[in-house]
Nucleic acid binder design. Sequence first.
DNA 1: TATGAATGAGCCTTCATTCAT
DNA 2: AATGAATGAAGGCTCATTCAT
Lengths: 210, 210, 210, 210
Amino acid sequence: MTGAGAPAASRALRSQGRRTVRRLLEAGVEVLAAKGYHAARVDDVVRAASTSHGTFYRYFANKDDLFRALLVEVGEAMGEHAESLGPLTADDAGREELRRWLVGFARLYDRFAPVVRAWVEAEMDTDQFGRVGADVLAGFAGILTERIEAADGPVDDPASAAIVVVAMIERANYYAAVGHLAIDPEPLADSLAAAVHAALFGISTPRVSH
Amino acid sequence: MTGAGAPAASRALRSQGRRTVRRLLEAGVEVLAAKGYHAARVDDVVRAASTSHGTFYRYFANKDDLFRALLVEVGEAMGEHAESLGPLTADDAGREELRRWLVGFARLYDRFAPVVRAWVEAEMDTDQFGRVGADVLAGFAGILTERIEAADGPVDDPASAAIVVVAMIERANYYAAVGHLAIDPEPLADSLAAAVHAALFGISTPRVSH
Amino acid sequence: MTGAGAPAASRALRSQGRRTVRRLLEAGVEVLAAKGYHAARVDDVVRAASTSHGTFYRYFANKDDLFRALLVEVGEAMGEHAESLGPLTADDAGREELRRWLVGFARLYDRFAPVVRAWVEAEMDTDQFGRVGADVLAGFAGILTERIEAADGPVDDPASAAIVVVAMIERANYYAAVGHLAIDPEPLADSLAAAVHAALFGISTPRVSH
Amino acid sequence: MTGAGAPAASRALRSQGRRTVRRLLEAGVEVLAAKGYHAARVDDVVRAASTSHGTFYRYFANKDDLFRALLVEVGEAMGEHAESLGPLTADDAGREELRRWLVGFARLYDRFAPVVRAWVEAEMDTDQFGRVGADVLAGFAGILTERIEAADGPVDDPASAAIVVVAMIERANYYAAVGHLAIDPEPLADSLAAAVHAALFGISTPRVSH
DNA sequence: TATGAATGAGCCTTCATTCAT
DNA sequence: AATGAATGAAGGCTCATTCAT
């Protein structure tokens, strides 16, 4: 798994080739961060990777192919993290687990923010591109649904609750990463954990002691 | 307030001109719905409005000018609705008020979905365009913050709680409108109201019957 | 029938537009003559037509669309001429008719040589382009077949005889037009008429009197 | 004579080198057959020859160098065959000789069809490439002219008659090989022999039985 | 000697915007 | 006021050829 796109799928890359692919992928993230998906130019990417157009198309079928490859990487990292969510319980341990998991998610999100933003930007366009992103989301929601069912809390409809939770987590992190609204990361993580736990078990925070 | 863009600002439009502007705005929504922001072409808009390029530029400075005008309309409607949120209370009346408000929001969202999607798509691009959208969000979050503070619930940080709530509401409706994930509108509204109320007052649902 | 390509098919062209189309078609012939089909650049055409790339694509879907339009024009002219062939008879009148017809053909061929050469060059490429050309040839061969059958001469298989004759006429004119081989037009026309008549009626030339 | 191009001219090739050259030439024919001259890519050739770009340019100066080498091979074979045409006489023996010769030509043409098609396609492009082909044709026409003169038939202008005959033979075979028009090979050979003999001696076919 | 990685000029096409009628 | 013709900068992609290993 080199991370390369379609044109390189049939060939076995040598070490030089693999290095170039890596450089292009990293350049892709850079450009996505700087200009976003639609404004990203192949020229920007090859310049950032210090290579040529010809080389780009040796490893990726086109612009989308590169970004799809990036999204797949992100999807894999996110999927792995999603699996790491332990059982959800109504007690403090459960809330703590949730918090731990959300912090990990925030870290991932922050790291991959440019790619996720690109996905959001591109959602409408390419079926393929949108598909990869939707799969990530669906996988996420699926795992949450399982945990919620297993938690046996007061939730009526685990599937739609999971979606609400995913939506909340994703967007809140998105706002934080994009900086669209001014939020501090720490209180946000707390608020999120509280909100999610409350949504699942009905108790907002342990310090409700008045 | 005719809804026209910059070039028409200095002129007083006659009724024919106003009709043309109206046609262009509606065509803009149509095109946004059909193709999204980045794939929308001026040519698509003028064809949908049965008019010409020359005419388009008589009323709007450029493509973005049209979409900004649309977004302003949406922002105004959303802002008005935001203001209509009554006091939030921990009891059933508070939950009911919340539910009413969320249903209204879902209706608005549904009606303006193409424009909102366009905004999401365009977020990175134009400072101006993104700004209008961010203002809408910020206005929203501000009003919620006020209400949460006034509610005097167990919430620690009203501002970031408001953002979590906005994120949850916005995204959940977005998913529903775009159809990215399969959600039924009714249980979604219920789940949302329950989740928001729980996040604010710590009681998830009245029917916790274990 | 303006001769324009696909993009102009749905619009009604005004006189300015029709003039532009005409200029582009003529420029196409020029460029074809100077550089041939494969070396022809859209840029060459628009420069020869003193217009812009944008304008080119307003009237033709792409390079091929322009050349197809030209080929259709040629095909129509050739088809009309083909129809003008009178009955073939074994006597001098028949030979004279044949000669007249061949001379007319040579004139047409000369006039449209660049386009025909382009067709020959492109034969393999586009199905569409090749199809138009093949249709012209087939139409030609069909008419000849009819005439040969009507002539009731000693020919065994009118269809393949017609093809031989078409091949002979086409190529001989081609060589003459392209200048690949040094041929004078007049004796060529004579030789062709003699050969064709001989092929159809078995008498090569009237002056075989030894 | 290894058939290699310019870069190999100065070196003496070992047996491995000769094998590589052979593979490249055969790959060239394959690719020409499959995609034609203009669509042929160096990459296609090296892939078909199971070798690399670097190797290709060790033996051929460039793409055209390979195809020129192929055309030279064809030209030699054709030239040899042309020489094999015996004296043309007005009697049945002459007609039979002509038929034999034409059948041999058809076989050659069929075998080399891809290369000949490539030549036709490329006629305009490279002076060099076109020249080789024109030389083949001219050699052909020259030999025919000689034979026609020696035959002392009723032909007025042997040179242009030869060209008409060459045109007829070449194109008819071309159509047959390319499949542009539906022709059966056998009646075509007969028709051709009959037509050529008639053009030269004035008697179309022996079986004129009216 | 062979391989495959890299190059970059070149070409087609799009589309927001301006202009002439 | 409206129309549609014209513009041209910009960007994606190809592929013959050269280079480094």
